[in-house]
Amino acid sequence: MRVKLDGDRVRNDRIRKVEEIADQSVYRCYQCGKCSAACPATPEMDMLPSQVIRYLQLGMDDKVFAANTPWICASCLQCMTVCPKGVDLARLMEAIRMLQLRKGQNQIEIRAFDRAYLERAPQIAMISAYRKFLSLS
C-alpha cells in the first residue's frame, strides 16, 4: 500500500486555508508525539492528533478530512499545554471542522435527540455541541 507522495499536494490551498483559519503553521511541529500522549480522547480517534499534523505536512489533507479525529477532539487543550513547539493543535482541529461545517457537513441531527435526553442534558452541552457540530453560523 505505497502512498504516492505528491509534491504538488504539499502546501496545497486547503492546507494553507487550515493554517490561516487556525493561525498556526503545521511546519512548526517536529512530530515528537507529546500531544498524542496527552490527548484524553485518542481511544475514540482513528488518527492520532500528531498524525493529523503529519498528514497536513505531507500534503495528505484528504486523509485528515476523512478522519474522525477532529470531530472527537473536545478542545480540552491538553495538547497545546504540553507542546514543546507552542503549536495550538486545537485550533488546527477547529479549522478542519470549520472547513467542513461551512460546506454544510453537519455532524449531529437535532431532531434525533429524544425528549427525555434533552430534558436531562444541560443547555450548555447542547449549545456547545451545536457550535461544534452544526453549520448554523
Binding site: 484524553p40 480522547a41 481511544p43 475514540e44 470531530w71 472527537i72 473536545a74 478542545s75 480540552c76 491538553q78 455532524q107 449531529i108 435527540f113 442534558a121 452541552a125 447542547m126 456547545s128 455541541a129 461544534k132 457540530f133
Partner: peptide
C-alpha cells in the same frame, strides 16, 4: 484536570462516558 468529554457527550457519548 483531565477532560470529562465535555460537549462530546452530545456527539460521541462513548468518549464522554469513558473519560
Amino acid at each position: 484536570a483531565e477532560c470529562c468529554g465535555a460537549f462530546q457527550v452530545v456527539h460521541s457519548d462513548a468518549m464522554a462516558t469513558r473519560c
